[in-house]
């Protein structure tokens, strides 16, 4: 059992580090469906996984200049505000509609991503005054392409709105919402895919740490489950970060789309099934 949880966590760590999701999407179904753990411990474990994976991966990505710290921090203002909004309105909004709205939003993102499937780098993007003012630009060395990539962001306002919605979602349902963060940066702000996933990686850890206190206080993070999860995800994240630099942006997109579709469909299904 201990080693089964550990192995699941290693897989989640690798996937999370490459896709910028934190790994909660892999951990929760694996622990509940495969290992029959109660859902509340699975969610508690996924929070630990998100923080471990994010911190482990972000340390490497920030060093390699793949993560854009400014973009991450500036957008984190929106997600934290969203998370607080979500926590405050939690009693008044039915999760039924939320699942439907977000499921449709993700389905739309999947379609948008399909259109950009062959796009390795965004190239020149339309000028955005706010991006200029906030200095949303940077460069990183792309190991797969063997060249230094310069980029700058566009569409800061739509990106920020999506980030705020992502925050509301995680505040309401306790989900890390790395998917929405990557989508906001890739589809709305048109950053290189690697910059989007690694910046999201940094952000999900910060957001998850904020909600971790809830689960810790409730006793949902018991040591026998948390220990193998934390160590497994850290190991996986270390491996994933070394792998990701060598992958092409288009490969990461291709890996991203099936995850997106599965989550979108299960969310819409949840919305239809719940009364």
């Amino acid at each position: 059992m201990f080693f089964a949880i550990f192995l699941v966590s290693v897989a989640a760590g690798i996937g999370g580090a490459i896709l910028g999701l934190g790994g909660g999407i892999i951990i929760v179904p694996a622990l509940t469906l495969l290992l029959n753990l109660p859902i509340r411990f699975a969610i508690g474990a996924s929070i630990v996984a998100v923080i471990a994976g994010s911190s482990g991966a972000a340390a490497a990505y920030i060093r390699d200049r793949m993560t854009n710290l400014r973009i991450g921090l500036a957008l984190e203002t929106m997600t934290t505000m969203g998370a607080l909004t979500g926590a405050l309105v939690a009693g008044y909004v039915s999760p039924h509609w939320l699942y439907l709205i977000f499921g449709l939003l993700l389905a739309y993102s999947a379609v948008a991503l399909f259109g950009r499937l062959k796009l390795e780098l965004p190239g020149e993007v339309p000028y955005d005054r706010l991006a200029e003012r906030l200095r949303f630009s940077g460069d990183y060395y792309d190991q797969a392409l063997g060249q230094r990539v310069h980029y700058s962001a566009t569409g800061v306002i739509p990106g920020a709105v999506m980030m705020y919605l992502a925050g509301i979602f995680s505040g309401l349902l306790g989900i890390g919402s790395g998917l929405f963060k990557v989508m906001a940066m890739d589809v709305a702000m048109r950053l290189p895919m690697k910059v989007s996933t690694s910046t999201s990686n940094f952000m999900v850890g910060v957001t998850a740490a904020a909600s971790a206190s809830v689960y810790f206080t409730r006793g949902d993070i018991p040591a026998p489950i948390a220990a193998p999860v934390a160590l497994g995800v850290l190991g996986g994240a270390w491996f994933g970060t070394n792998l990701m630099g060598h992958l092409r942006n288009t490969t990461i997109r291709k890996l991203f789309i099936p995850v997106l579709i599965v989550v979108a469909v299960s969310m819409i299904a949840k919305a239809i099934r719940s009364p």
């Binding site: 630990v48 471990a52 911190s55 710290l69 910060v206 998850a208």
Partner: peptide, 24 residues
């Protein structure tokens, strides 16, 4: 207690990103 040592490690993990933002 072994369990308390593990939980202390989990707590360290949780506060790491929050303290990082403060230091930034």
């Amino acid at each position: 207690e072994p369990e308390a040592v593990i939980e202390a490690g989990i707590l360290l993990l949780i506060v790491t990103p929050v303290l990082t933002v403060g230091a930034t």
